[in-house]
């Protein structure tokens, strides 16, 4: 399940875990065309963490629905491991914005849901899930129902559900946006540690520049609606990364640069 660092480091030659090419999509509303995605291309190499930053409401979530196969793009293709999979479902592990844990399942069963769907929620999977729950600080809460957990704990359980899913690529849709500032930075640190040990291929949507810089290998900056790729930036900081990277001058400079680009984009938005 877990990719070791070794298998991720041969990425130079191997095929991207997820590649989308020239995706365009418009919603039709009473004869009106509402373009949402405009010729979007991006790549998530195997074992890399890629983020998308963009103004809120720019159609980032719609992109996930396209990748997840819920929406058919008007143009463009989605490839996974080199195979065209446009419109196919069940190939990504999705972590929605709200935890969306099932209230009638206890934490352990919630975390195992994706495994159940793919039909391999066996004893080994349960043991693995228990181990991860302990590591995520949810050790004593296996049998608790979601409403008994705090917001941060629910979000962590939701992450674990995504992490334990059999699919290679994990898509995170603004997973921290509903949390308060303190929990949020806690969760970022937690996710960073978690990712450093598991090294899955991740695509994260966020509107926080700092969050993206802290976690990612590559950042794509999106424009406002209709969303298109404005800028692609590689994050140079070494792995394994620590949270203290936030204070490095290079980090601050990169943050300033990307924020400036974002502000410029925001100001173009018609009011």
């Amino acid at each position: 399940m877990m990719n070791t660092e070794k298998s991720a480091s041969v990425s130079g030659t191997d095929i991207a875990a997820l590649e989308i090419q020239g995706i365009s999509l418009a919603f039709r509303k009473r004869r009106q065309q509402l373009p949402v995605l405009n010729d979007i291309s991006l790549t998530v190499p195997a074992g890399k963490f890629v983020s998308i930053i963009g103004p809120s409401g720019c159609g980032k979530s719609t992109l996930f629905h396209v990748i997840g196969g819920l929406l058919e793009p008007d143009q463009g293709v989605v490839r996974m491991g080199g195979r065209e999979v446009t419109g196919q479902r069940g190939l990504i592990s999705y972590v929605p914005q709200k935890p969306a844990l099932f209230p009638w399942r206890n934490t352990l069963d919630n975390v195992l849901l994706a495994r159940e769907i793919s039909g391999d929620a066996n004893e080994a999977a349960r043991a693995e899930a228990r181990e991860w729950l302990v590591r995520a600080g949810l050790g004593g809460f296996e049998k608790s129902y979601p409403h008994m957990l705090s917001g941060g704990m629910q979000q962590r359980a939701s992450f674990l559900r995504g992490l334990l899913a059999p699919q290679e690529v994990i898509c995170l849709d603004e997973p921290f946006s509903s949390l308060d500032e303190l929990t949020r930075s806690d969760m970022q640190r937690w996710l960073l540690d978690l990712w450093e040990t598991s090294r899955r291929s991740v695509l994260l949507i966020t509107h926080s520049v700092e969050e993206a810089l802290l976690l990612s290998d590559t950042i794509y900056l999106f424009s406002g609606r209709p969303a298109s790729v404005l800028h692609r930036a590689d994050v140079p900081f070494a792995r394994p990364r620590r949270e203290s990277v936030i204070e490095e001058p290079g980090f601050l400079e990169l943050k300033r640069e990307i924020s400036a680009r974002m502000k410029e984009e925001q100001s173009k938005k018609p009011i």
Partner: peptide, 10 residues
Amino acid sequence: VMLDYMRMAG
């Protein structure tokens, strides 16, 4: 949201 989750999970 739960329905979307289930669908995307295949």
